[in-house]
Amino acid sequence: QPLTASMLAAVPPQEQKQMLGERLFPLIQDMHPSLAGKITGMLLEMDNSELLHMLESTESLRSKVDEAVAVLKAHQA
């Protein structure tokens, strides 16, 4: 079942990020298998409302993943 804002509101902040990460990771892994852990870590720094939106919208997720990859590669260079 889809993750909702009310489900998140029922658990502590740290657990909210855990729930979001568990949902986002497999989607990101499909796009970037080798960087999925790092990308998920970066995206979890965003607001939960944005993360929920990314779970609902592949387009939105893909765009943020692309941004994260660019930042990650620049950082690693």
Partner: peptide
């Protein structure tokens, strides 16, 4: 920050430790 350990890595099934100050 821009240190070597950034960004914190998420691993499924492992408790997330990336954001300690939320």
């Amino acid at each position: 920050g821009t240190n070597a350990s950034w960004p914190p890595e998420f691993c499924p099934g492992v408790p997330w430790k990336g954001l300690q100050n939320i």
